[in-house]
């Protein structure tokens, strides 16, 4: 998709599987994952709580061994050549990378030492990262006194310290305000431009869309879609909600929209409201509104919603996210 993409997979998994057994109950967290991610790709794992995103990342980063199947990262097997994998990757986990009793700068320095980066180079790199994530003010305070978002930025800085060839980010934007979210996206784009292979997880389709060329939707430990965000969205379409003065108007308008719109379109009328799900609905909505007004059934309210993860999910599985969350809520909590 970009000029950095070469035909050599940096991440390759074959039937990658992981089970957890707790008090005699087995959870199949990841079930037979087959993946190929090329060098320089920016991939987002999208899926509800408990889908197996973190477990996949934890296997790819050598934190837990697979129950079965194999995985290679940067040309090294994640079980047989753990040390080599660890030297090639950066990892920002779902938790906090910096210990609460430490200071941010000290943790960055110990990370540099762990990677054998000489002191002077490490210092320069640390200053660079503190500036990039707007952390200079907080670097010399104990981590436990930082806000959630400040801590999260520190986690990311630590993960980037060694200029990894392959970067894994597990929900990197959790707890960030819109400004820092935007900054994070900017940094991730830069890393991508420089050729870093990036795998991140998220719950938000917008985020996956804003960042990743490729979105892998995971549910119950299996891949249920692997496509570009644009295509996932197009296939689903935007939701256009139109409100009318009377039910009669709404009925007429629904019929008119039906004949005017092309492509896979779903139209539904409830009372005085018409909901239309159609590809590129945001683009066609203004013309539609003008057309309806010109034919004597003017819309009095209009909302346009881009598809959400929930919509993609509903489309792919026939279940809404909420339903699927219910079956896993008991086991979550601590992991969240």
């Amino acid at each position: 998709m970009t000029n950095h993409t070469h035909q050599r997979p940096v991440i390759r998994t074959e039937a990658l599987t992981r089970h957890f057994t707790r008090s005699k109950k087995t959870v199949e967290a990841v079930r037979g994952l087959d993946l190929e991610i090329q060098q320089g790709e920016l991939v987002a794992f999208l899926g509800p709580n408990g889908a197996g995103k973190s477990t996949t990342l934890r296997m790819l980063t050598t934190l837990i061994p697979p129950t079965s199947g194999t995985a290679e990262v940067a040309g090294h097997d994640v079980v047989r050549s753990r040390a080599a994998v660890r030297r090639s990757i950066g990892y920002v986990g779902q938790g906090n990378a910096a210990a609460f009793v430490q200071r941010g700068r000290d943790e960055l320095m110990s990370q540099a030492r762990a990677h054998g980066i000489p002191r002077a180079a490490a210092k320069a790199r640390i200053d660079e990262l503190l500036a990039a994530f707007d952390l200079q003010e907080y670097a010399d305070r104990p981590v436990q006194t930082l806000s959630g978002g400040q801590r999260r930025r520190l986690d990311i800085a630590i993960g980037l310290l060694n200029h990894p060839d392959v970067l894994f980010l597990d929900e990197p934007s959790t707890g960030l305000d819109p400004q820092n979210r935007a900054n994070l996206q900017e940094q991730i784009r830069r890393l991508h431009q420089d050729g870093t292979t990036i795998v991140l997880t998220t719950h938000y389709l917008e985020e996956a869309d804003a960042l990743a060329g490729r979105v892998i939707v995971i549910d119950h430990g299996v891949v249920i879609a692997d496509d570009t965000a644009t295509r996932l969205k197009e296939r689903l379409g935007d939701l256009v909600l139109l409100g009318f003065a009377t039910e009669a108007d709404a009925t007429t308008a629904a019929a008119r929209a039906e004949s005017a719109l092309t492509g896979p379109t779903l139209i539904d009328r409830t009372g005085t409201q018409v909901s239309i799900r159609t590809p590129r609905g945001a683009d066609s909505a203004p013309a539609m509104a003008i057309d309806l007004a010109a034919h004597g059934t003017p819309a009095i309210r209009m909302e346009v919603h881009a598809p959400t993860l929930d919509d993609v999910f509903l489309d792919l599985t026939g279940r809404s996210l909420r339903e699927s969350a219910e079956s896993t809520t008991q086991t979550e909590g601590a992991a969240a």
């Binding site: 934190l63 040390a83 986990g93 779902q94 906090n96 990378a97 910096a98 990370q111 762990a114 990677h115």
Partner: peptide
């Protein structure tokens, strides 16, 4: 989570 980060480091 900071122990996890050390486990992933070299």
């Amino acid at each position: 989570g900071s122990h996890e980060r050390l486990l992933v480091s070299p």
